[in-house]
Design a protein around this nucleic acid. Structure first.
Lengths: 160, 160
DNA sequence: GGAGTATAGTTTCAACTGCAACGATCGCCA
DNA sequence: TGGCGATCGTTGCAGTTGAAACTATACTCC
Protein backbone atom coordinates (compact mmCIF):
# COMPACT_ATOMS: atom_id res chain seq x y z
CA UNK A 1 0.00 0.00 0.00
CA UNK A 2 2.36 2.61 -1.21
CA UNK A 3 -0.17 5.42 -1.17
CA UNK A 4 -3.53 5.37 0.47
CA UNK A 5 -4.57 8.70 -0.94
CA UNK A 6 -6.04 7.33 -4.10
CA UNK A 7 -9.33 9.14 -4.08
CA UNK A 8 -10.58 12.61 -3.33
CA UNK A 9 -7.18 13.75 -2.29
CA UNK A 10 -6.02 16.39 -4.71
CA UNK A 11 -2.32 16.90 -4.30
CA UNK A 12 -1.15 20.45 -4.01
CA UNK A 13 0.86 21.20 -7.12
CA UNK A 14 4.58 21.33 -6.58
CA UNK A 15 5.32 23.06 -9.81
CA UNK A 16 4.16 26.48 -10.84
CA UNK A 17 2.38 26.20 -14.15
CA UNK A 18 0.71 29.46 -14.99
CA UNK A 19 -1.90 27.72 -17.12
CA UNK A 20 -3.16 25.89 -14.05
CA UNK A 21 -2.46 28.56 -11.50
CA UNK A 22 -5.73 29.80 -10.08
CA UNK A 23 -4.82 33.46 -9.60
CA UNK A 24 -3.52 33.65 -13.12
CA UNK A 25 -6.57 31.95 -14.61
CA UNK A 26 -8.85 34.28 -12.71
CA UNK A 27 -6.93 37.27 -13.94
CA UNK A 28 -7.04 36.29 -17.58
CA UNK A 29 -10.68 35.31 -17.46
CA UNK A 30 -11.73 38.49 -15.70
CA UNK A 31 -9.91 40.64 -18.21
CA UNK A 32 -11.32 38.79 -21.17
CA UNK A 33 -14.85 39.05 -19.87
CA UNK A 34 -14.60 42.70 -18.91
CA UNK A 35 -13.16 43.54 -22.29
CA UNK A 36 -15.91 41.70 -24.08
CA UNK A 37 -18.55 43.61 -22.21
CA UNK A 38 -16.73 46.88 -22.66
CA UNK A 39 -17.10 46.42 -26.39
CA UNK A 40 -20.75 47.18 -25.90
CA UNK A 41 -20.34 50.68 -24.57
CA UNK A 42 -16.85 51.92 -25.26
CA UNK A 43 -17.29 52.61 -28.92
CA UNK A 44 -20.89 53.68 -28.58
CA UNK A 45 -20.66 56.07 -25.67
CA UNK A 46 -16.97 56.66 -25.20
CA UNK A 47 -17.10 55.26 -21.68
CA UNK A 48 -14.14 53.69 -19.93
CA UNK A 49 -14.67 50.67 -17.71
CA UNK A 50 -14.37 52.77 -14.57
CA UNK A 51 -16.81 55.37 -15.87
CA UNK A 52 -19.27 52.65 -16.75
CA UNK A 53 -18.98 51.16 -13.29
CA UNK A 54 -19.68 54.49 -11.68
CA UNK A 55 -22.68 54.96 -13.94
CA UNK A 56 -23.87 51.47 -13.11
CA UNK A 57 -23.69 51.89 -9.38
CA UNK A 58 -25.34 55.30 -9.52
CA UNK A 59 -28.07 53.90 -11.71
CA UNK A 60 -28.77 51.31 -9.07
CA UNK A 61 -28.11 53.39 -5.96
CA UNK A 62 -28.71 57.08 -6.63
CA UNK A 63 -27.36 59.74 -4.36
CA UNK A 64 -24.18 58.05 -3.21
CA UNK A 65 -21.09 60.05 -2.35
CA UNK A 66 -17.85 59.48 -4.24
CA UNK A 67 -16.48 57.47 -1.37
CA UNK A 68 -19.56 55.29 -1.17
CA UNK A 69 -19.32 54.66 -4.87
CA UNK A 70 -15.75 53.57 -4.37
CA UNK A 71 -16.69 51.21 -1.58
CA UNK A 72 -19.41 49.60 -3.62
CA UNK A 73 -17.25 48.93 -6.63
CA UNK A 74 -13.87 48.45 -5.01
CA UNK A 75 -12.33 51.49 -6.63
CA UNK A 76 -10.00 53.80 -4.81
CA UNK A 77 -11.09 57.35 -4.33
CA UNK A 78 -8.65 58.72 -6.89
CA UNK A 79 -10.14 56.58 -9.61
CA UNK A 80 -13.63 57.56 -8.57
CA UNK A 81 -12.69 61.22 -8.52
CA UNK A 82 -11.40 61.06 -12.07
CA UNK A 83 -14.30 59.02 -13.38
CA UNK A 84 -16.71 61.48 -11.80
CA UNK A 85 -14.82 64.38 -13.33
CA UNK A 86 -15.14 62.87 -16.78
CA UNK A 87 -18.79 62.02 -16.31
CA UNK A 88 -19.47 65.59 -15.25
CA UNK A 89 -17.47 66.83 -18.20
CA UNK A 90 -19.51 64.71 -20.60
CA UNK A 91 -22.68 65.78 -18.79
CA UNK A 92 -23.96 62.43 -17.65
CA UNK A 93 -24.19 62.89 -13.91
CA UNK A 94 -24.88 65.68 -11.46
CA UNK A 95 -23.00 66.58 -8.32
CA UNK A 96 -24.30 68.56 -5.38
CA UNK A 97 -22.84 69.27 -2.00
CA UNK A 98 -24.43 67.44 0.85
CA UNK A 99 -25.90 70.27 2.92
CA UNK A 100 -25.39 68.23 6.09
CA UNK A 101 -21.69 67.70 5.36
CA UNK A 102 -20.20 69.98 2.79
CA UNK A 103 -17.21 67.74 2.26
CA UNK A 104 -19.41 65.07 0.77
CA UNK A 105 -20.84 65.27 -2.69
CA UNK A 106 -24.10 63.70 -3.74
CA UNK A 107 -23.94 62.08 -7.14
CA UNK A 108 -26.81 61.21 -9.45
CA UNK A 109 -27.40 60.32 -13.05
CA UNK A 110 -28.98 63.03 -15.17
CA UNK A 111 -31.23 62.22 -18.11
CA UNK A 112 -28.32 61.48 -20.42
CA UNK A 113 -26.67 59.20 -17.89
CA UNK A 114 -29.93 57.44 -17.17
CA UNK A 115 -30.47 56.88 -20.89
CA UNK A 116 -27.05 55.27 -21.20
CA UNK A 117 -27.64 53.17 -18.13
CA UNK A 118 -30.98 51.97 -19.45
CA UNK A 119 -29.33 50.99 -22.70
CA UNK A 120 -26.15 49.40 -21.40
CA UNK A 121 -27.41 47.54 -18.35
CA UNK A 122 -29.55 45.10 -20.36
CA UNK A 123 -26.66 44.50 -22.72
CA UNK A 124 -24.38 43.74 -19.82
CA UNK A 125 -26.90 41.36 -18.32
CA UNK A 126 -27.33 39.67 -21.68
CA UNK A 127 -23.58 39.19 -21.94
CA UNK A 128 -23.52 37.70 -18.49
CA UNK A 129 -26.24 35.23 -19.48
CA UNK A 130 -24.34 34.39 -22.59
CA UNK A 131 -21.28 33.66 -20.54
CA UNK A 132 -23.24 31.60 -18.04
CA UNK A 133 -24.95 29.68 -20.81
CA UNK A 134 -21.96 27.35 -21.09
CA UNK A 135 -22.58 26.21 -17.50
CA UNK A 136 -25.21 23.88 -16.16
CA UNK A 137 -27.61 25.11 -13.50
CA UNK A 138 -25.64 23.19 -10.90
CA UNK A 139 -22.40 24.73 -12.08
CA UNK A 140 -23.87 28.21 -11.93
CA UNK A 141 -25.03 27.66 -8.40
CA UNK A 142 -21.65 26.21 -7.45
CA UNK A 143 -19.84 29.14 -9.02
CA UNK A 144 -21.92 31.55 -7.03
CA UNK A 145 -21.07 29.81 -3.79
CA UNK A 146 -17.41 29.43 -4.67
CA UNK A 147 -16.92 33.05 -5.65
CA UNK A 148 -18.59 34.09 -2.45
CA UNK A 149 -16.29 31.93 -0.38
CA UNK A 150 -13.18 33.08 -2.19
CA UNK A 151 -14.15 36.71 -1.96
CA UNK A 152 -14.77 36.46 1.75
CA UNK A 153 -11.74 34.36 2.50
CA UNK A 154 -9.85 37.46 3.37
CA UNK A 155 -7.01 36.73 0.98
CA UNK A 156 -4.57 37.75 3.64
CA UNK A 157 -1.46 39.47 2.54
CA UNK A 158 1.43 37.11 2.26
CA UNK A 159 3.34 36.91 5.54
CA UNK A 160 6.59 38.78 5.44
CA UNK B 1 -50.42 27.13 -10.61
CA UNK B 2 -49.05 30.54 -11.16
CA UNK B 3 -45.48 29.42 -11.78
CA UNK B 4 -44.28 25.95 -12.41
CA UNK B 5 -40.63 26.88 -12.33
CA UNK B 6 -40.20 26.40 -8.65
CA UNK B 7 -37.02 24.38 -8.69
CA UNK B 8 -33.73 24.41 -10.49
CA UNK B 9 -34.77 27.27 -12.66
CA UNK B 10 -32.60 30.26 -11.83
CA UNK B 11 -34.18 33.38 -13.25
CA UNK B 12 -31.91 35.63 -15.21
CA UNK B 13 -31.54 38.84 -13.23
CA UNK B 14 -33.43 41.77 -14.61
CA UNK B 15 -31.62 44.33 -12.58
CA UNK B 16 -27.95 45.09 -12.78
CA UNK B 17 -26.49 44.76 -9.32
CA UNK B 18 -22.76 44.95 -9.49
CA UNK B 19 -22.37 42.91 -6.32
CA UNK B 20 -23.98 39.96 -8.05
CA UNK B 21 -22.73 40.60 -11.54
CA UNK B 22 -20.39 37.83 -12.56
CA UNK B 23 -17.92 39.86 -14.63
CA UNK B 24 -17.58 42.35 -11.87
CA UNK B 25 -17.12 39.72 -9.18
CA UNK B 26 -14.47 38.01 -11.25
CA UNK B 27 -12.66 41.26 -11.78
CA UNK B 28 -12.58 42.20 -8.12
CA UNK B 29 -11.57 38.75 -7.00
CA UNK B 30 -8.80 38.47 -9.57
CA UNK B 31 -7.38 41.84 -8.60
CA UNK B 32 -7.51 41.08 -4.91
CA UNK B 33 -5.79 37.76 -5.33
CA UNK B 34 -3.12 39.06 -7.68
CA UNK B 35 -2.40 41.90 -5.32
CA UNK B 36 -2.09 39.57 -2.37
CA UNK B 37 0.41 37.42 -4.20
CA UNK B 38 2.30 40.41 -5.51
CA UNK B 39 2.94 41.39 -1.89
CA UNK B 40 5.29 38.46 -1.78
CA UNK B 41 7.72 39.66 -4.41
CA UNK B 42 7.18 43.32 -5.14
CA UNK B 43 8.77 44.70 -2.03
CA UNK B 44 11.39 41.98 -1.80
CA UNK B 45 12.64 41.92 -5.37
CA UNK B 46 11.21 45.03 -6.96
CA UNK B 47 9.34 42.99 -9.52
CA UNK B 48 6.19 44.15 -11.24
CA UNK B 49 3.42 41.68 -11.92
CA UNK B 50 4.34 41.45 -15.58
CA UNK B 51 8.01 40.94 -14.80
CA UNK B 52 7.11 38.20 -12.37
CA UNK B 53 4.94 36.50 -14.93
CA UNK B 54 7.75 36.52 -17.45
CA UNK B 55 10.10 35.10 -14.87
CA UNK B 56 7.56 32.45 -13.97
CA UNK B 57 7.01 31.27 -17.49
CA UNK B 58 10.73 31.25 -18.26
CA UNK B 59 11.40 29.30 -15.10
CA UNK B 60 8.97 26.69 -16.25
CA UNK B 61 9.72 26.80 -19.98
CA UNK B 62 13.26 27.95 -20.65
CA UNK B 63 14.32 29.17 -24.04
CA UNK B 64 11.08 30.72 -25.21
CA UNK B 65 11.05 33.70 -27.54
CA UNK B 66 9.41 36.95 -26.48
CA UNK B 67 6.40 36.17 -28.59
CA UNK B 68 6.03 32.71 -27.14
CA UNK B 69 6.21 34.16 -23.68
CA UNK B 70 3.43 36.51 -24.63
CA UNK B 71 1.27 33.70 -25.94
CA UNK B 72 1.71 31.66 -22.80
CA UNK B 73 0.76 34.42 -20.44
CA UNK B 74 -1.66 36.40 -22.57
CA UNK B 75 0.52 39.49 -22.69
CA UNK B 76 0.93 41.54 -25.81
CA UNK B 77 4.37 41.78 -27.31
CA UNK B 78 4.93 45.34 -26.20
CA UNK B 79 4.43 44.43 -22.58
CA UNK B 80 6.72 41.45 -22.97
CA UNK B 81 9.36 43.55 -24.64
CA UNK B 82 9.40 46.03 -21.82
CA UNK B 83 9.33 43.43 -19.09
CA UNK B 84 12.24 41.67 -20.78
CA UNK B 85 14.13 44.96 -21.02
CA UNK B 86 13.73 45.52 -17.29
CA UNK B 87 14.70 41.97 -16.45
CA UNK B 88 17.83 42.32 -18.57
CA UNK B 89 18.53 45.65 -16.93
CA UNK B 90 18.25 44.11 -13.48
CA UNK B 91 20.32 41.14 -14.68
CA UNK B 92 17.86 38.35 -14.08
CA UNK B 93 17.54 36.82 -17.53
CA UNK B 94 19.69 36.32 -20.61
CA UNK B 95 18.83 36.98 -24.21
CA UNK B 96 20.47 35.46 -27.24
CA UNK B 97 19.60 35.59 -30.89
CA UNK B 98 18.18 32.42 -32.34
CA UNK B 99 20.86 31.43 -34.89
CA UNK B 100 18.20 29.83 -37.06
CA UNK B 101 16.09 32.99 -37.16
CA UNK B 102 17.81 36.13 -36.12
CA UNK B 103 14.57 37.97 -35.57
CA UNK B 104 13.75 35.74 -32.66
CA UNK B 105 15.40 36.02 -29.30
CA UNK B 106 15.91 33.13 -26.93
CA UNK B 107 15.23 34.01 -23.32
CA UNK B 108 16.43 32.23 -20.20
CA UNK B 109 16.76 32.84 -16.51
CA UNK B 110 20.28 33.39 -15.26
CA UNK B 111 21.38 32.41 -11.76
CA UNK B 112 19.83 35.48 -10.18
CA UNK B 113 16.54 34.99 -11.97
CA UNK B 114 16.50 31.32 -11.11
CA UNK B 115 17.11 32.14 -7.47
CA UNK B 116 14.16 34.49 -7.42
CA UNK B 117 11.99 31.98 -9.20
CA UNK B 118 12.92 29.25 -6.73
CA UNK B 119 11.99 31.57 -3.89
CA UNK B 120 8.80 33.08 -5.24
CA UNK B 121 7.20 30.09 -6.95
CA UNK B 122 6.67 28.15 -3.69
CA UNK B 123 5.25 31.26 -2.07
CA UNK B 124 2.83 31.71 -4.94
CA UNK B 125 1.77 28.08 -4.72
CA UNK B 126 1.32 28.39 -0.99
CA UNK B 127 -0.90 31.41 -1.49
CA UNK B 128 -2.94 29.50 -3.99
CA UNK B 129 -3.40 26.66 -1.51
CA UNK B 130 -4.36 29.14 1.15
CA UNK B 131 -6.98 30.56 -1.13
CA UNK B 132 -8.27 27.13 -2.10
CA UNK B 133 -8.36 26.03 1.50
CA UNK B 134 -11.75 27.67 1.96
CA UNK B 135 -13.20 25.32 -0.64
CA UNK B 136 -14.12 21.68 -0.33
CA UNK B 137 -12.51 19.13 -2.61
CA UNK B 138 -15.69 19.01 -4.64
CA UNK B 139 -15.77 22.76 -4.95
CA UNK B 140 -12.18 22.87 -6.09
CA UNK B 141 -12.86 20.32 -8.77
CA UNK B 142 -15.98 22.18 -9.83
CA UNK B 143 -14.10 25.45 -9.99
CA UNK B 144 -11.49 23.90 -12.21
CA UNK B 145 -14.12 22.67 -14.64
CA UNK B 146 -16.08 25.91 -14.55
CA UNK B 147 -13.09 28.13 -15.19
CA UNK B 148 -12.12 25.92 -18.08
CA UNK B 149 -15.56 26.17 -19.61
CA UNK B 150 -15.75 29.91 -19.16
CA UNK B 151 -12.30 30.45 -20.56
CA UNK B 152 -13.05 28.40 -23.63
CA UNK B 153 -16.52 29.78 -24.15
CA UNK B 154 -15.14 32.23 -26.65
CA UNK B 155 -16.59 35.22 -24.85
CA UNK B 156 -17.65 36.63 -28.18
CA UNK B 157 -17.56 40.34 -28.60
CA UNK B 158 -20.91 41.89 -28.09
CA UNK B 159 -22.78 42.12 -31.36
CA UNK B 160 -22.84 45.59 -32.79
C1' DG C 1 -14.77 78.49 20.93
C1' DG C 2 -10.31 77.24 19.26
C1' DA C 3 -6.37 73.80 18.50
C1' DG C 4 -5.65 69.41 16.90
C1' DT C 5 -7.19 65.45 14.45
C1' DA C 6 -10.04 62.98 11.10
C1' DT C 7 -12.47 62.70 6.69
C1' DA C 8 -13.96 63.86 1.54
C1' DG C 9 -12.14 64.78 -2.44
C1' DT C 10 -8.53 66.77 -5.78
C1' DT C 11 -4.05 67.37 -7.72
C1' DT C 12 0.66 66.14 -8.76
C1' DC C 13 4.18 63.13 -10.25
C1' DA C 14 6.08 59.00 -11.75
C1' DA C 15 5.24 54.55 -13.55
C1' DC C 16 2.72 51.74 -16.56
C1' DT C 17 -0.13 50.50 -20.72
C1' DG C 18 -1.76 50.20 -25.58
C1' DC C 19 -1.53 51.60 -30.19
C1' DA C 20 0.78 52.76 -34.12
C1' DA C 21 4.93 53.51 -36.54
C1' DC C 22 9.36 51.73 -37.27
C1' DG C 23 13.81 48.79 -38.27
C1' DA C 24 15.48 44.31 -38.98
C1' DT C 25 15.11 39.77 -40.66
C1' DC C 26 12.85 36.10 -43.00
C1' DG C 27 10.23 33.42 -46.70
C1' DC C 28 8.23 33.23 -51.05
C1' DC C 29 8.19 33.36 -55.76
C1' DA C 30 9.02 35.56 -60.32
C1' DT D 1 18.78 37.01 -57.21
C1' DG D 2 16.05 40.31 -55.78
C1' DG D 3 11.88 42.38 -54.44
C1' DC D 4 7.52 42.15 -51.65
C1' DG D 5 4.87 40.89 -47.92
C1' DA D 6 4.95 38.79 -43.34
C1' DT D 7 6.99 38.32 -38.76
C1' DC D 8 9.84 39.55 -34.45
C1' DG D 9 10.78 42.93 -31.60
C1' DT D 10 11.55 48.00 -30.16
C1' DT D 11 10.37 52.83 -29.63
C1' DG D 12 7.41 57.19 -29.32
C1' DC D 13 3.45 59.05 -27.85
C1' DA D 14 -0.62 59.76 -25.57
C1' DG D 15 -3.73 58.22 -22.18
C1' DT D 16 -4.36 55.80 -17.64
C1' DT D 17 -3.16 54.44 -13.06
C1' DG D 18 -1.63 54.60 -8.03
C1' DA D 19 0.74 56.70 -4.05
C1' DA D 20 1.40 60.61 -1.64
C1' DA D 21 0.83 65.45 -0.87
C1' DC D 22 -2.57 68.90 -0.54
C1' DT D 23 -7.17 71.66 0.32
C1' DA D 24 -11.35 72.14 2.52
C1' DT D 25 -14.64 70.85 5.76
C1' DA D 26 -16.12 68.47 9.94
C1' DC D 27 -15.51 66.57 14.55
C1' DT D 28 -13.45 66.30 19.42
C1' DC D 29 -11.98 67.68 23.56
C1' DC D 30 -10.26 70.97 26.67
Amino acid sequence: MPDKRTKNAPEPPTRLDLEHFLPYRLSVLANTVSQAIAQGYQARYGLSVTEWRVLAVLGRYPGLSALEVGERIAMDKVAVSRAVARLLESDRITRELDPADRRRSVLNLNAAGRAIYDQVAPMALAQEQRLLSVLSAQERAALDVILGKLAHSGVPAMPL
